[in-house]
Design a binder for these strands. Structure first.
Lengths: 187, 187
DNA sequence: CCTTTGTTTCAGAATTTTCTGAAAATTGTA
DNA sequence: TACAATTTTCAGAAAATTCTGAAACAAAGG
Protein backbone atom coordinates (compact mmCIF):
# COMPACT_ATOMS: atom_id res chain seq x y z
CA UNK A 1 0.00 0.00 0.00
CA UNK A 2 2.53 2.57 1.14
CA UNK A 3 4.58 0.99 -1.60
CA UNK A 4 2.03 2.00 -4.24
CA UNK A 5 1.70 5.51 -2.86
CA UNK A 6 5.43 5.88 -2.73
CA UNK A 7 5.76 4.75 -6.31
CA UNK A 8 3.09 7.17 -7.43
CA UNK A 9 4.87 9.92 -5.58
CA UNK A 10 8.20 9.23 -7.20
CA UNK A 11 6.57 9.01 -10.54
CA UNK A 12 4.93 12.41 -10.41
CA UNK A 13 8.04 14.09 -9.08
CA UNK A 14 10.13 12.42 -11.72
CA UNK A 15 7.65 13.51 -14.35
CA UNK A 16 7.88 17.09 -13.16
CA UNK A 17 11.64 17.13 -13.19
CA UNK A 18 11.78 15.61 -16.60
CA UNK A 19 9.30 18.10 -17.91
CA UNK A 20 11.23 21.02 -16.46
CA UNK A 21 14.47 19.78 -17.99
CA UNK A 22 12.80 19.16 -21.35
CA UNK A 23 11.19 22.58 -21.47
CA UNK A 24 14.46 24.20 -20.47
CA UNK A 25 16.24 22.45 -23.29
CA UNK A 26 13.58 23.44 -25.76
CA UNK A 27 13.76 27.04 -24.60
CA UNK A 28 17.47 27.28 -25.13
CA UNK A 29 17.02 25.87 -28.66
CA UNK A 30 14.73 28.81 -29.40
CA UNK A 31 16.82 31.55 -27.89
CA UNK A 32 15.29 31.65 -24.43
CA UNK A 33 17.64 31.33 -21.44
CA UNK A 34 17.44 27.82 -20.06
CA UNK A 35 16.63 28.96 -16.55
CA UNK A 36 13.84 31.19 -17.72
CA UNK A 37 12.22 28.30 -19.55
CA UNK A 38 12.75 26.05 -16.53
CA UNK A 39 11.13 28.47 -14.14
CA UNK A 40 8.22 28.79 -16.48
CA UNK A 41 7.96 25.01 -16.82
CA UNK A 42 8.00 24.60 -13.06
CA UNK A 43 5.23 27.12 -12.51
CA UNK A 44 3.20 25.70 -15.35
CA UNK A 45 3.43 22.08 -14.27
CA UNK A 46 2.84 22.85 -10.62
CA UNK A 47 -0.29 24.75 -11.57
CA UNK A 48 -0.31 26.73 -8.35
CA UNK A 49 1.41 29.93 -7.22
CA UNK A 50 4.93 29.61 -5.86
CA UNK A 51 7.10 32.17 -4.13
CA UNK A 52 10.70 33.05 -4.89
CA UNK A 53 12.12 30.76 -2.23
CA UNK A 54 10.18 27.77 -3.48
CA UNK A 55 11.42 28.38 -7.00
CA UNK A 56 14.99 28.82 -5.76
CA UNK A 57 14.83 25.56 -3.85
CA UNK A 58 13.14 23.58 -6.57
CA UNK A 59 15.63 24.58 -9.26
CA UNK A 60 18.65 25.19 -7.05
CA UNK A 61 19.32 28.69 -8.33
CA UNK A 62 20.33 31.89 -6.57
CA UNK A 63 17.95 34.50 -5.26
CA UNK A 64 19.19 37.05 -7.75
CA UNK A 65 18.65 34.74 -10.65
CA UNK A 66 15.18 33.76 -9.47
CA UNK A 67 14.22 37.39 -9.01
CA UNK A 68 15.44 38.49 -12.42
CA UNK A 69 13.97 35.51 -14.19
CA UNK A 70 10.56 35.85 -12.56
CA UNK A 71 10.47 39.50 -13.40
CA UNK A 72 11.26 38.69 -17.00
CA UNK A 73 8.49 36.12 -17.15
CA UNK A 74 6.08 38.70 -15.74
CA UNK A 75 7.28 41.22 -18.33
CA UNK A 76 6.63 38.67 -21.03
CA UNK A 77 3.14 38.29 -19.66
CA UNK A 78 3.21 34.52 -19.22
CA UNK A 79 3.51 34.60 -15.43
CA UNK A 80 1.50 36.72 -13.05
CA UNK A 81 2.16 38.05 -9.59
CA UNK A 82 -0.26 36.86 -6.96
CA UNK A 83 -0.65 38.21 -3.45
CA UNK A 84 -1.91 36.26 -0.53
CA UNK A 85 -3.67 37.69 2.48
CA UNK A 86 -1.50 37.56 5.56
CA UNK A 87 1.63 36.65 3.62
CA UNK A 88 4.13 39.29 2.73
CA UNK A 89 5.83 37.12 0.14
CA UNK A 90 5.02 37.51 -3.50
CA UNK A 91 3.75 34.50 -5.37
CA UNK A 92 3.97 33.72 -9.05
CA UNK A 93 1.55 31.77 -11.17
CA UNK A 94 1.92 30.63 -14.76
CA UNK A 95 -0.79 30.99 -17.36
CA UNK A 96 -2.45 27.58 -17.63
CA UNK A 97 -4.19 27.99 -20.97
CA UNK A 98 -1.73 26.75 -23.56
CA UNK A 99 -3.29 28.71 -26.38
CA UNK A 100 -3.15 31.91 -24.40
CA UNK A 101 0.45 31.12 -23.61
CA UNK A 102 1.20 30.64 -27.28
CA UNK A 103 -0.53 33.87 -28.23
CA UNK A 104 1.29 35.83 -25.57
CA UNK A 105 4.67 34.56 -26.67
CA UNK A 106 3.81 35.22 -30.30
CA UNK A 107 2.68 38.76 -29.47
CA UNK A 108 5.87 39.53 -27.58
CA UNK A 109 8.24 38.05 -30.13
CA UNK A 110 6.45 39.88 -32.91
CA UNK A 111 6.65 43.14 -31.03
CA UNK A 112 10.25 42.74 -29.95
CA UNK A 113 11.78 40.99 -32.93
CA UNK A 114 9.67 40.72 -36.05
CA UNK A 115 8.36 44.29 -36.19
CA UNK A 116 11.78 45.89 -35.65
CA UNK A 117 13.29 43.50 -38.20
CA UNK A 118 10.77 44.50 -40.86
CA UNK A 119 11.28 48.15 -40.07
CA UNK A 120 15.07 47.91 -40.29
CA UNK A 121 14.96 45.82 -43.44
CA UNK A 122 12.89 48.51 -45.12
CA UNK A 123 15.46 51.09 -44.20
CA UNK A 124 18.29 48.96 -45.40
CA UNK A 125 17.22 48.77 -49.04
CA UNK A 126 19.84 50.28 -51.32
CA UNK A 127 18.69 53.71 -52.36
CA UNK A 128 21.11 54.02 -55.29
CA UNK A 129 20.14 56.23 -58.16
CA UNK A 130 18.87 54.53 -61.30
CA UNK A 131 22.01 55.40 -63.31
CA UNK A 132 24.29 53.69 -60.79
CA UNK A 133 22.53 50.46 -61.50
CA UNK A 134 25.37 48.10 -62.33
CA UNK A 135 28.30 47.70 -59.96
CA UNK A 136 31.90 46.77 -60.67
CA UNK A 137 31.24 43.23 -59.57
CA UNK A 138 28.42 42.92 -62.06
CA UNK A 139 25.76 43.11 -59.39
CA UNK A 140 22.83 45.31 -60.13
CA UNK A 141 21.17 47.31 -57.41
CA UNK A 142 17.87 46.20 -58.87
CA UNK A 143 18.68 42.54 -58.30
CA UNK A 144 19.92 43.27 -54.81
CA UNK A 145 16.81 45.18 -53.93
CA UNK A 146 14.61 42.53 -55.50
CA UNK A 147 15.96 40.00 -53.01
CA UNK A 148 15.22 42.29 -50.12
CA UNK A 149 11.75 42.88 -51.49
CA UNK A 150 11.05 39.18 -51.70
CA UNK A 151 12.09 38.80 -48.09
CA UNK A 152 9.98 41.76 -47.09
CA UNK A 153 6.92 40.44 -48.82
CA UNK A 154 7.33 37.15 -47.01
CA UNK A 155 7.67 38.98 -43.73
CA UNK A 156 4.61 41.04 -44.51
CA UNK A 157 2.64 37.84 -44.80
CA UNK A 158 4.07 36.52 -41.56
CA UNK A 159 3.11 39.80 -39.97
CA UNK A 160 -0.42 39.51 -41.29
CA UNK A 161 -0.80 35.99 -40.01
CA UNK A 162 0.45 36.99 -36.59
CA UNK A 163 -2.04 39.82 -36.46
CA UNK A 164 -4.87 37.51 -37.35
CA UNK A 165 -3.88 34.90 -34.82
CA UNK A 166 -3.50 37.56 -32.18
CA UNK A 167 -6.66 39.51 -32.71
CA UNK A 168 -9.46 37.94 -30.70
CA UNK A 169 -12.04 38.27 -33.49
CA UNK A 170 -13.29 35.46 -35.69
CA UNK A 171 -11.34 36.70 -38.69
CA UNK A 172 -8.65 34.10 -38.12
CA UNK A 173 -10.15 31.49 -40.40
CA UNK A 174 -10.33 33.90 -43.32
CA UNK A 175 -6.80 35.08 -42.75
CA UNK A 176 -5.44 31.59 -42.61
CA UNK A 177 -7.26 30.73 -45.77
CA UNK A 178 -5.85 33.80 -47.45
CA UNK A 179 -2.37 32.90 -46.30
CA UNK A 180 -2.77 29.37 -47.55
CA UNK A 181 -3.77 30.59 -50.98
CA UNK A 182 -0.90 33.02 -50.97
CA UNK A 183 1.51 30.22 -50.27
CA UNK A 184 0.22 28.09 -53.12
CA UNK A 185 0.52 30.97 -55.52
CA UNK A 186 4.07 31.79 -54.42
CA UNK A 187 5.63 28.39 -54.98
CA UNK B 1 29.03 61.27 -62.73
CA UNK B 2 31.74 59.24 -61.07
CA UNK B 3 30.27 60.87 -58.02
CA UNK B 4 26.91 59.26 -58.67
CA UNK B 5 28.46 55.88 -59.46
CA UNK B 6 30.55 56.07 -56.33
CA UNK B 7 27.53 56.88 -54.26
CA UNK B 8 25.57 54.01 -55.72
CA UNK B 9 28.48 51.71 -54.99
CA UNK B 10 28.76 52.73 -51.37
CA UNK B 11 25.07 52.42 -50.97
CA UNK B 12 24.81 48.85 -52.19
CA UNK B 13 27.76 47.73 -50.13
CA UNK B 14 26.40 49.44 -47.09
CA UNK B 15 23.05 47.83 -47.70
CA UNK B 16 24.67 44.41 -47.87
CA UNK B 17 26.59 44.90 -44.68
CA UNK B 18 23.59 46.15 -42.86
CA UNK B 19 21.52 43.25 -44.07
CA UNK B 20 24.14 40.73 -42.98
CA UNK B 21 24.34 42.28 -39.52
CA UNK B 22 20.57 42.41 -39.23
CA UNK B 23 20.11 38.81 -40.24
CA UNK B 24 22.85 37.72 -37.89
CA UNK B 25 21.14 39.49 -35.03
CA UNK B 26 17.83 37.93 -35.89
CA UNK B 27 19.41 34.51 -36.07
CA UNK B 28 20.90 34.75 -32.65
CA UNK B 29 17.51 35.80 -31.27
CA UNK B 30 16.12 32.53 -32.57
CA UNK B 31 18.85 30.22 -31.39
CA UNK B 32 20.98 30.18 -34.52
CA UNK B 33 24.67 31.05 -34.14
CA UNK B 34 25.25 34.58 -35.29
CA UNK B 35 27.97 33.63 -37.74
CA UNK B 36 25.83 30.96 -39.33
CA UNK B 37 23.06 33.45 -39.95
CA UNK B 38 25.58 35.97 -41.26
CA UNK B 39 27.10 33.54 -43.71
CA UNK B 40 23.66 32.66 -44.92
CA UNK B 41 22.72 36.32 -45.24
CA UNK B 42 25.86 37.01 -47.23
CA UNK B 43 25.24 34.18 -49.68
CA UNK B 44 21.60 35.10 -50.00
CA UNK B 45 22.12 38.78 -50.64
CA UNK B 46 25.01 38.22 -53.02
CA UNK B 47 22.86 35.84 -55.00
CA UNK B 48 25.86 34.14 -56.56
CA UNK B 49 28.13 31.30 -55.47
CA UNK B 50 31.06 32.21 -53.25
CA UNK B 51 33.99 30.11 -52.11
CA UNK B 52 35.32 29.67 -48.61
CA UNK B 53 38.00 32.33 -49.00
CA UNK B 54 35.53 34.91 -50.20
CA UNK B 55 33.28 34.22 -47.24
CA UNK B 56 36.22 34.37 -44.85
CA UNK B 57 37.30 37.70 -46.23
CA UNK B 58 33.86 39.22 -46.37
CA UNK B 59 33.02 38.38 -42.77
CA UNK B 60 36.52 38.34 -41.34
CA UNK B 61 36.27 34.88 -39.84
CA UNK B 62 38.71 31.98 -39.66
CA UNK B 63 38.95 29.17 -42.17
CA UNK B 64 37.82 26.64 -39.60
CA UNK B 65 34.78 28.64 -38.71
CA UNK B 66 33.86 29.22 -42.34
CA UNK B 67 34.26 25.54 -43.14
CA UNK B 68 32.13 24.33 -40.23
CA UNK B 69 29.48 26.97 -40.77
CA UNK B 70 29.16 26.31 -44.47
CA UNK B 71 28.90 22.60 -43.84
CA UNK B 72 26.12 23.24 -41.32
CA UNK B 73 24.24 25.39 -43.79
CA UNK B 74 24.54 22.64 -46.37
CA UNK B 75 23.31 20.11 -43.80
CA UNK B 76 20.33 22.33 -43.10
CA UNK B 77 19.65 22.33 -46.81
CA UNK B 78 19.55 26.10 -47.28
CA UNK B 79 22.91 26.35 -49.02
CA UNK B 80 24.18 24.18 -51.83
CA UNK B 81 27.63 23.19 -52.98
CA UNK B 82 28.45 24.24 -56.51
CA UNK B 83 31.42 23.13 -58.57
CA UNK B 84 33.01 25.12 -61.32
CA UNK B 85 34.84 23.71 -64.26
CA UNK B 86 38.54 24.32 -64.03
CA UNK B 87 38.38 25.47 -60.45
CA UNK B 88 39.21 23.14 -57.64
CA UNK B 89 37.65 25.35 -55.04
CA UNK B 90 34.19 24.59 -53.80
CA UNK B 91 31.55 27.26 -54.13
CA UNK B 92 28.42 27.76 -52.07
CA UNK B 93 25.12 29.19 -53.14
CA UNK B 94 22.10 30.09 -51.01
CA UNK B 95 18.55 29.16 -51.90
CA UNK B 96 16.98 32.27 -53.42
CA UNK B 97 13.34 31.36 -53.08
CA UNK B 98 12.26 32.74 -49.72
CA UNK B 99 9.33 30.36 -49.39
CA UNK B 100 11.52 27.38 -50.07
CA UNK B 101 13.96 28.72 -47.51
CA UNK B 102 11.18 29.02 -44.97
CA UNK B 103 9.93 25.52 -45.65
CA UNK B 104 13.38 24.03 -45.40
CA UNK B 105 14.03 25.67 -42.06
CA UNK B 106 10.61 24.62 -40.81
CA UNK B 107 11.22 21.04 -41.93
CA UNK B 108 14.57 20.87 -40.17
CA UNK B 109 13.45 22.46 -36.94
CA UNK B 110 10.44 20.20 -36.83
CA UNK B 111 12.57 17.14 -37.40
CA UNK B 112 15.30 18.12 -34.97
CA UNK B 113 13.34 19.84 -32.24
CA UNK B 114 9.58 19.56 -32.38
CA UNK B 115 9.28 15.85 -33.12
CA UNK B 116 11.72 14.79 -30.39
CA UNK B 117 10.03 17.16 -27.96
CA UNK B 118 6.63 15.61 -28.59
CA UNK B 119 8.07 12.15 -28.30
CA UNK B 120 9.81 12.88 -25.02
CA UNK B 121 6.81 14.69 -23.58
CA UNK B 122 4.69 11.62 -24.23
CA UNK B 123 7.16 9.49 -22.35
CA UNK B 124 7.30 11.91 -19.49
CA UNK B 125 3.65 11.66 -18.48
CA UNK B 126 3.29 10.36 -14.94
CA UNK B 127 2.30 6.73 -15.11
CA UNK B 128 1.20 6.53 -11.47
CA UNK B 129 -1.48 3.99 -10.56
CA UNK B 130 -5.00 5.33 -10.13
CA UNK B 131 -4.99 4.75 -6.37
CA UNK B 132 -1.93 6.91 -5.85
CA UNK B 133 -3.88 9.81 -7.23
CA UNK B 134 -3.42 12.50 -4.59
CA UNK B 135 0.04 13.46 -3.39
CA UNK B 136 1.16 14.83 -0.05
CA UNK B 137 1.24 18.32 -1.48
CA UNK B 138 -2.35 18.02 -2.56
CA UNK B 139 -1.47 17.67 -6.22
CA UNK B 140 -3.31 15.02 -8.13
CA UNK B 141 -1.61 13.02 -10.81
CA UNK B 142 -4.70 13.53 -12.91
CA UNK B 143 -4.29 17.32 -12.82
CA UNK B 144 -0.61 17.03 -13.57
CA UNK B 145 -1.20 14.78 -16.53
CA UNK B 146 -4.02 16.97 -17.75
CA UNK B 147 -1.57 19.84 -18.11
CA UNK B 148 0.79 17.70 -20.11
CA UNK B 149 -2.07 16.52 -22.27
CA UNK B 150 -3.12 20.06 -23.02
CA UNK B 151 0.41 20.86 -24.08
CA UNK B 152 0.58 17.73 -26.18
CA UNK B 153 -2.66 18.47 -27.95
CA UNK B 154 -1.37 21.93 -28.79
CA UNK B 155 1.84 20.42 -30.12
CA UNK B 156 -0.13 17.88 -32.12
CA UNK B 157 -1.86 20.76 -33.88
CA UNK B 158 1.45 22.51 -34.50
CA UNK B 159 2.75 19.27 -35.91
CA UNK B 160 -0.24 18.95 -38.20
CA UNK B 161 0.16 22.49 -39.48
CA UNK B 162 3.82 21.93 -40.16
CA UNK B 163 3.03 18.80 -42.11
CA UNK B 164 0.49 20.62 -44.20
CA UNK B 165 2.77 23.53 -44.91
CA UNK B 166 5.58 21.16 -45.79
CA UNK B 167 3.77 18.76 -48.04
CA UNK B 168 3.87 20.06 -51.56
CA UNK B 169 0.21 19.23 -52.30
CA UNK B 170 -2.65 21.70 -52.37
CA UNK B 171 -4.00 20.52 -49.03
CA UNK B 172 -2.50 23.50 -47.31
CA UNK B 173 -5.56 25.68 -47.55
CA UNK B 174 -7.78 23.06 -45.98
CA UNK B 175 -5.31 22.41 -43.20
CA UNK B 176 -4.96 26.06 -42.38
CA UNK B 177 -8.71 26.43 -42.31
CA UNK B 178 -8.98 23.46 -40.01
CA UNK B 179 -6.33 24.90 -37.74
CA UNK B 180 -8.08 28.25 -37.68
CA UNK B 181 -11.35 26.64 -36.62
CA UNK B 182 -9.51 24.64 -34.00
CA UNK B 183 -8.05 27.78 -32.56
CA UNK B 184 -11.41 29.48 -32.30
CA UNK B 185 -12.91 26.50 -30.55
CA UNK B 186 -10.05 26.29 -28.07
CA UNK B 187 -10.22 29.80 -26.72
C1' DC C 1 11.38 56.35 13.56
C1' DC C 2 13.37 51.60 13.89
C1' DT C 3 13.08 46.72 12.83
C1' DT C 4 11.91 42.95 10.28
C1' DT C 5 10.82 40.76 6.11
C1' DG C 6 11.14 40.55 1.42
C1' DT C 7 12.85 42.21 -3.24
C1' DT C 8 16.01 44.13 -6.59
C1' DT C 9 20.34 45.26 -8.45
C1' DC C 10 24.71 44.59 -10.47
C1' DA C 11 29.90 43.73 -10.45
C1' DG C 12 32.44 40.01 -10.92
C1' DA C 13 32.53 34.71 -11.26
C1' DA C 14 31.24 30.70 -13.57
C1' DT C 15 29.58 28.52 -17.40
C1' DT C 16 28.45 27.83 -22.06
C1' DT C 17 29.02 28.82 -26.65
C1' DT C 18 31.56 30.03 -30.44
C1' DC C 19 35.92 30.74 -32.88
C1' DT C 20 40.72 30.15 -34.19
C1' DG C 21 44.64 28.12 -36.26
C1' DA C 22 47.53 24.61 -37.23
C1' DA C 23 47.81 19.71 -38.14
C1' DA C 24 45.61 15.90 -40.48
C1' DA C 25 42.90 14.30 -44.10
C1' DT C 26 41.23 14.46 -48.71
C1' DT C 27 41.16 15.33 -53.53
C1' DG C 28 42.79 16.15 -57.96
C1' DT C 29 47.04 16.29 -61.06
C1' DA C 30 51.15 15.04 -63.17
C1' DT D 1 53.66 7.54 -56.41
C1' DA D 2 54.66 12.24 -55.21
C1' DC D 3 52.90 16.65 -54.97
C1' DA D 4 50.19 20.68 -54.52
C1' DA D 5 45.70 22.60 -53.56
C1' DT D 6 41.85 22.51 -50.76
C1' DT D 7 38.98 21.06 -46.97
C1' DT D 8 38.10 19.24 -42.42
C1' DT D 9 38.87 18.55 -37.68
C1' DC D 10 39.40 19.63 -32.98
C1' DA D 11 42.01 21.17 -28.71
C1' DG D 12 42.51 25.16 -26.62
C1' DA D 13 41.49 30.35 -26.71
C1' DA D 14 38.28 33.94 -26.84
C1' DA D 15 33.92 35.82 -26.41
C1' DA D 16 29.31 35.95 -24.99
C1' DT D 17 25.95 34.67 -21.88
C1' DT D 18 24.16 33.48 -17.61
C1' DC D 19 24.46 33.15 -12.59
C1' DT D 20 25.75 34.31 -7.89
C1' DG D 21 25.78 36.70 -3.63
C1' DA D 22 25.98 40.45 -0.95
C1' DA D 23 24.70 45.19 -0.53
C1' DA D 24 21.15 48.52 -1.41
C1' DC D 25 16.48 49.25 -1.46
C1' DA D 26 11.47 49.03 -0.31
C1' DA D 27 7.45 48.08 2.35
C1' DA D 28 4.93 46.90 6.38
C1' DG D 29 4.50 46.49 11.40
C1' DG D 30 5.24 48.05 15.70
Amino acid sequence: MSEALQQGDVSIRASRERFVALWGQMGSNWGIPRTMAEVHALLFIRGKPMNTDEVMDALDISRGNASMTLRNLVDWGIVQRVHRRGDRKEYFEAEQDVWKLFRTILRERKRREIDPLIHQLRECRAGGSAEADVEKDGESAAAHNARLEELLSFLALVDLMCQEILQPGEGSADAMELAARFMERET
